[in-house]
Write a protein that binds this DNA or RNA. Structure first.
Length: 426
RNA sequence: GUGGGCGUAGCUCAGCUGGUAGAGCACUCGGUUGUGGUCCGAGAUGUCGCGGGUUCGAGCCCCGUCGUUCACCCCA
């Protein structure tokens, strides 16, 4: 009887050994600056009420209109696998009344997100992001700090070939004024139906079209940045000033468009140059109306999401991923059942002292077991057989140079602790 | 959703104008009665993605299908 193999669903990216350690490293580096800045963990569900996204992210967005994994649960409720992180954070903050305390609420999150798109380099149906949100304070200094935290994450990875684009979407009045002129401009263009449709939903989207004819058509389009109210402009100037003070390089990109509807004011995006078509490694911005739309207070917020998968691709492209570091301190090769029992007991005792132990399993030939010990990168090896158990003494082999020394079993722990701390000091 | 490339051993791939499958690495065992890395020897492993067609004969050609990959739309 031969069963068919089952494959992973289309478009998922898995991280298996040895690459998984690099993934873990990237995720830790990306989020470390947020932890250092006082952000605390929020662990959220990966599925939510569908309305959270249609209302929060916006029905006009591609994400909501054609990329959501939506299904009905057994109680007939419409459920959606989260396509982004901010809406879920807002929902939880409102639900738990976290916004009634000290502001800003500062949280970070990490996990997988889902979009039903056609996969390609750097774009997967399940992808990983780390992100932060700072809710309840509208201050350009906070905007600058949030951007700085994201930037520091990429710097932690050793990345150099990336650029930070920033712009401001201004306040509602600024956007309204600009929209009138932009619509007028777009009305003069000769557009295909699909593009006209997109323009009517959100004219700003046309700035993001990669097709060359569209790029040149939009070259003379009125820019939102030129329509900012005095207050918005002053606010944006402060953000730029603070970034400069922090030594963070940025480019003002008035044509930058974000894909989600809730953004207002300061928005930003990190773009890496070695990744092919999907080059955005992170982005975010301020969202003034989101909390209210989701039934909460009228509070502003700002946050970002960083793509862990893409950041890893970038780190690999730039060659900054550190080598595998794990190696056990002691590798025990037991010969026979009685020896296995002793090996397990020794391992138990030594691990309690944070000594890293691996055991050779499976009754393989000694040569093979030694080979496995070598591959594992173990610093020391002992062979445990009847002779050793009878004598109460083992031969401790130092793998770096092959030197063997006799050690009484009862002294193994202290001997190892001493030997390991000495090598660490070297 | 649209378009192009690619599916051969665990991995990376080779396979001439069609003649019934190979390399390197990895793996196992041995050279060393119980001590790794180098070296030497031996060995195991494939429905050539799947289905159909053309042919005396298909890994190679044709059609379909699935998977994968890159790009478009869009995005992390």
């Amino acid at each position: 009887m031969k069963f068919e193999k089952i494959q992973a669903p289309k478009g998922v990216r898995e991280y298996l050994p040895p690459e998984s350690s690099a993934f873990e490293w990237v995720r830790e580096q990306l989020i470390a600056p947020a932890k250092a800045a006082g952000y605390t963990l929020m662990e959220l569900p990966v599925f939510e009420d569908t309305n959270l996204f249609t209302r929060g992210v916006g029905e006009s967005t591609d994400v909501v209109s054609k990329e959501m994994y939506t299904f009905e649960d057994r109680g007939g409720r419409s459920i959606t696998l989260r396509p982004e992180g901010t809406a879920g954070v807002m929902r939880a903050v409102i639900e738990a009344n976290l916004d009634r305390g000290q502001l800003p609420v500062k949280v970070w999150y990490s996990g997988q997100f889902f979009r039903a798109e056609r996969p390609q380099a750097g774009r997967y149906r399940q992808f990983y992001q780390v992100g932060i949100e700072a809710i309840g304070v509208d201050d350009p200094a906070l905007d600058a700090e949030v951007i700085a935290i994201a930037d520091q994450g990429f710097k932690n990875l050793g990345l150099k070939n990336y650029r930070l684009d920033i712009t401001s979407l201004g306040d509602a009045a600024s956007r309204a004024a600009h929209r009138v002129d932009l619509m007028k401009f777009i009305g003069q263009l000769d557009l295909d139906e699909a593009t006209k449709e997109r323009a009517s939903i959100n004219p700003l989207r046309l700035f993001d079209d990669k097709r060359p004819q569209m790029q040149s058509a939009m070259a003379k389009a009125p820019l939102l940045l030129d329509y900012l109210s005095e207050e918005s402009r002053a606010n944006f100037d402060r953000v730029k000033e603070y970034l400069t003070v922090m030594g963070i390089a940025f480019v003002v990109n008035p044509r930058m468009v974000r894909g989600l509807d809730y953004y207002t004011g300061t928005t930003f995006e990190f773009v890496h140059s070695d990744l092919g078509a999907q080059s955005g490694i992170g982005g975010g911005g301020r969202y003034d109306g989101l909390m209210e739309i989701l039934g909460g207070q009228t509070l502003s917020g700002i946050g970002f999401g960083l793509g862990v998968d893409r950041a890893l691709l970038a780190a690999v492209a730039e060659g900054t991923v550190p080598g595998e570091e794990f190696s056990s301190d002691l590798f025990i090769i037991p010969l026979g059942d009685e020896a296995k029992s002793s090996a397990l007991r020794m391992a138990q005792e030594l691990r309690a002292r944070s000594i890293r132990i691996e055991i050779a399993f499976g009754d393989r030939a000694l040569k093979g077991a030694m080979k496995a010990a070598d591959k594992s990168g173990a610093r020391y090896v002992i062979v445990l057989g009847d002779a050793e158990l009878a004598a109460g003494e083992v031969e401790l082999k130092r793998m770096s140079d092959g030197v063997i020394s006799s050690v009484k079993i009862e002294q193994l722990k202290s001997t190892l602790i001493e030997a390991l701390s000495l090598t660490t000091l070297n």
